[in-house]
Design a protein around this nucleic acid. Structure first.
Lengths: 211, 211
DNA sequence: TTAAAAATATACTGGCCAGTATCCATAGAT
DNA sequence: ATCTATGGATACTGGCCAGTATATTTTTAA
């Protein structure tokens, strides 16, 4: 069998290297977008951080907007994976929700730059990209909503409208990306634990007077 | 008594008109910053909305950054006034906190553009302005923290660390500005009521298992 | 060892926009 | 009715930066 279909011997490694370069560009771009904002960050500056020149970037990304899309997509994708990863663990809704908040909060802190850029620069996205990304975010909120619904049906959670509560939980988590500062007053672990406690208080039954 | 100190007859009205013009410029600029982002919004576009030209703006504001500063300052000032206004009402910490969340949430929804621009464009501020504004925000969080402390001491609130809880409450409120959409799924009133319920659940004693 | 191709750099352009120098019109004052 | 001051418009500039045409180096293939 001739290997006409198989690519040349060295392609495998080359592709890995190309992927690595793409990733490095993305990292530095994210960093700069996070620090300076998307519009103020120039591609020349991104290139300089990598000790390359601007055309180098253009041979790995179509244009600046393409780079922003990837930053945002990475951020939302990481959050979504963390959520899905927590959901596969069996357990009560309460246990699952705790796991979800813990994992997602951790991922958000670890990848703060991606998510924070997404939240702040969403409106600089190409409309088509923006739609795709909002879709993913919507999916995130729906999975959360389903979990809350499940907990409500099981009598574990005391909430009126799961889909609305999901928005608040999702907001609380997003807020971490905007507010948390590495080396600030509170450690990552403290923030994660706080987040878990706050969310559980929001959904578990309490004595809170309604109305 | 000679009226040497009193300005010329027409000055009073003139100043009112000048103030009005400043306000209108601010409104349109805020709108555009909100829709397009600070960097993408051009002063020519702001001028066009007012049916004037760019130099008109420059005779009321030093430059584009000065305009951004005023937008952000307005946003944070409105929130702070709402908070202080609620605090003067006598009552238990619980009653006061409900009033605070209600008023601040309402103000945030009504003046969403200012606050949302502040949250998203903070890093475009001149460092000096940024510091002054952070100061106000810090004051906001402190007043909130004091209220939570008071409620904790009175045995009304079940919270570990008032200043940390204040951050979460403050974050929940800020999130409204970023997330709320007029004419969206939920009405302003629903959002305000939700915010009150969420915050009260976060601070009032419940059965939530800790740890 | 060399030719072809792939990867990266150099050097440029074109548009956009903040900010400004200058000109014009309108409204009080006399 | 004319002078003057003020408020605003016209028309420009200078810098910055995304994006690109072209040159150069490096790698691969034979």
């Amino acid at each position: 069998m001739p290997d006409t279909k198989r690519p040349p011997r060295s392609t495998q490694l080359k592709e890995e290297i190309a992927a690595y370069k793409r990733r490095r560009i993305l990292e530095e771009a994210t960093d700069l977008f996070f620090i300076q904002g998307y519009d103020c960050a120039t591609l020349d500056a991104v290139a300089e951080r990598l000790d390359v020149t601007k055309p180098f970037i253009y041979s790995y990304y179509k244009n600046k907007g393409d780079l922003l899309r990837e930053v945002c997509q990475t951020g939302i994708r990481l959050s979504l994976f963390a959520l899905e990863g927590a959901l596969v663990i069996e357990g009560t809704a309460t246990e699952q929700l705790k796991a979800v908040v813990e994992r997602v909060a951790r991922i958000i802190i670890e990848n703060q730059r991606y998510i924070s850029v997404y939240l702040r620069e969403e409106k600089n996205l190409d409309p088509k990209d923006a739609r795709a990304i909002r879709e993913m975010r919507h999916h995130f909120d729906e999975l959360l909503s389903d979990l809350l619904e499940k907990g409500k049906k099981a009598g574990e959670f005391d909430i009126a409208d799961p889909s609305r509560t999901a928005i608040w939980v999702s907001g609380l988590l997003s807020w971490i990306a905007l507010w948390y500062r590495e080396g600030g007053h509170w450690s990552a672990t403290e923030v994660v634990m706080d987040a878990i406690n706050m969310v559980m208080k929001m959904v578990l039954p309490g004595n809170a007077a309604h109305g």
